[in-house]
Design a protein around this nucleic acid. Sequence first.
DNA 1: CAGTAATCGAGACGGTACGTCCCGTCTTTAT
DNA 2: ATAAAGACGGGACGTACCGTCTCGATTACTG
Lengths: 201, 201, 201, 201
Amino acid sequence: MPPRASGLSPRSRGRPRSQASEDAILDATAELLAACGYRAVTVDAIAARAGASKATIYRRWPTKENLVIAAIARSPVLVPPARGDLTEQLATTIAQFARYMQETPLGGVLPALVAERTHNPALADALASLTKLRRQPLADVLMAGMARGELPAGIDCEFAQDLLIGPVLQRIMVMGQRVDRRFINRVVRTVCSGLRASAGR
Amino acid sequence: MPPRASGLSPRSRGRPRSQASEDAILDATAELLAACGYRAVTVDAIAARAGASKATIYRRWPTKENLVIAAIARSPVLVPPARGDLTEQLATTIAQFARYMQETPLGGVLPALVAERTHNPALADALASLTKLRRQPLADVLMAGMARGELPAGIDCEFAQDLLIGPVLQRIMVMGQRVDRRFINRVVRTVCSGLRASAGR
Amino acid sequence: MPPRASGLSPRSRGRPRSQASEDAILDATAELLAACGYRAVTVDAIAARAGASKATIYRRWPTKENLVIAAIARSPVLVPPARGDLTEQLATTIAQFARYMQETPLGGVLPALVAERTHNPALADALASLTKLRRQPLADVLMAGMARGELPAGIDCEFAQDLLIGPVLQRIMVMGQRVDRRFINRVVRTVCSGLRASAGR
Amino acid sequence: MPPRASGLSPRSRGRPRSQASEDAILDATAELLAACGYRAVTVDAIAARAGASKATIYRRWPTKENLVIAAIARSPVLVPPARGDLTEQLATTIAQFARYMQETPLGGVLPALVAERTHNPALADALASLTKLRRQPLADVLMAGMARGELPAGIDCEFAQDLLIGPVLQRIMVMGQRVDRRFINRVVRTVCSGLRASAGR
DNA sequence: CAGTAATCGAGACGGTACGTCCCGTCTTTAT
DNA sequence: ATAAAGACGGGACGTACCGTCTCGATTACTG
């Protein structure tokens, strides 16, 4: 994430960085990611496609990993549906997430970033904030459901998210299988049943 | 997995491949994997440690990825406990799995392999069989539980495994957090409740 | 021979190639050539000694052979003596050439390059221009001798050079024997006699 | 040169070496040499073409170089013509040699062997005896010429051979040019003139 | 309006891993 | 003991990518 002059800062001297270059680089990264996958993408190729130089890239992001994170972080966040009961809202939100994992570069990129994280703490932070952003809509739906009484009040929201997303990610990432709406519906139904039953634990 | 002469095959001519070399290579791979992580491991280093030549390695496995898969495929399978009720057996099995993911090279390697799979179908097969092997003990415990009546009879076993393993993998791999026995117990309890409640669905 | 911007060319964009690297690489090549001989020289060793990377080497010369040619092409040309009669000047020039063949890497490298030429036309050109440069001083001495009347006017200069150098090279390269000043003197005397006698042919 | 059981030796025990294999190997070597040149020829390729195994090759010749020498050593020696005066006999003999250098593998192989000799003394001996064999017919013609009085009696025969062969080899090997009968005639005439003139030296 | 400083595209640089190739040796079974 | 087949250790080759650096050319702010 490039530090940019905030409103009141003295506006650093010299030629300002080009927003156009930055956009072109991020676009090129996302496109090549979708086309070739993480490992096959080359910083040189990104530079060539963006019409930028490698110096311009590395001035903004310290490594290829960080560039990739920035590129996928630009994709739109999930929009939780306003209508329907809890089960339906959850299923719809998760389906959006699943589609996103299966039809955009993210699906191929996420494991690569996860693999790198072990040896790259800085990347871990960036990845964490990205993940948190992705999970937020699901949390919102859960909170609303609790407020409406569709779930017991004491539910651990993080735990519930793990229960809901984990199986889907397991199918898509680890097993490499496609996930359809039926599978998602079953997950949501079973997990909600379990959460309600274990409430008074 | 190098094809080896089956019992009745005519024993292909020429000097047979050395089992000792193969073992040394796989051992060296596993050790270096544990010590350095996937990305930092070098084929040259593996060859040096194994006292083998690179040609001997590449004769058996076409790429570094395949070699790594073969190395981790040798690790012992999970041993489901014979005692305890369903909940306890499941939790113990999953805890073994979690420990394995968190304290052996597998944790660092799996995402890298998953990331490669998209662009490498041959690797996908190897990974699938590996995954299946890892999941088997959990399936056994579930079947036994159903036989004892601790779970309704009609449960989809694959689905149940996804529900149980998914949240754990989500925590470890995607979130990069450690998983303790308490978390596993909660997952098992909630999922089992859900499965029982949704049985007649 | 890397193509370099000529005086009026628009100065190609990007970072220019480092002359310092180029010199270091050629120096290292010549030194290692002298120390180990052609076959034992390694591109990695050259890179290490020059403090350069292999990419920097291969950017300039497509193969090890071409690099070696460039390295030996830098050695100083023969300096024909200003004094003495034709016979003495020829003998001195040839003795310089013989010493050069016997005491520098060239002696070991030339046959290797000659051997490669058959299957490598690009190398043939480089070798031809190198050879021509080496023979020039001898041609100069012969022309001067003809001008002074020490040789008949109609002598074919290329032919005379072959007669003079051929026997020396035959001894050094093919027979692997050392050549001393006495042998050279005999060659020069005999060939000059023959050229004078066959003049009116 | 493989040690072979002499007539009266006790005929070493075990299966005798196959002469057919040896011939096939030498034929394959010569053919591949002609087709690809020395450097591009592989011992594996020779073995495959000869239907032999590498062990069979290395049991007979210690290195690739020695094998190559053995292969080219089988080619027929030059046959000096019985008729004609000295000049014509020399020219014919040299023309045979030139044709041999230009139209058989020898031309491409000789420089490679010469290049190797520096770092391989054992090869030097083999090469020397080969060279001597090639030069013998020329020596015979010279001796006969001296006996007939066409050359002065005191001529150094080795020296004369260097003068005659050197220029031809220079043209063919070093310059990479073709040599025709006219060139050879000029060399012979000029050298003979020179030898006669310098006789009383 | 001239000076200064950071930016830009281009591409060379050191380093390092990859996967291929070849040599000469060794280990099988078959003859 | 030798044969064919082919695996073995060793080591060089040439390629590719990363992240850094050096050019000349822009492009804004500053004095």
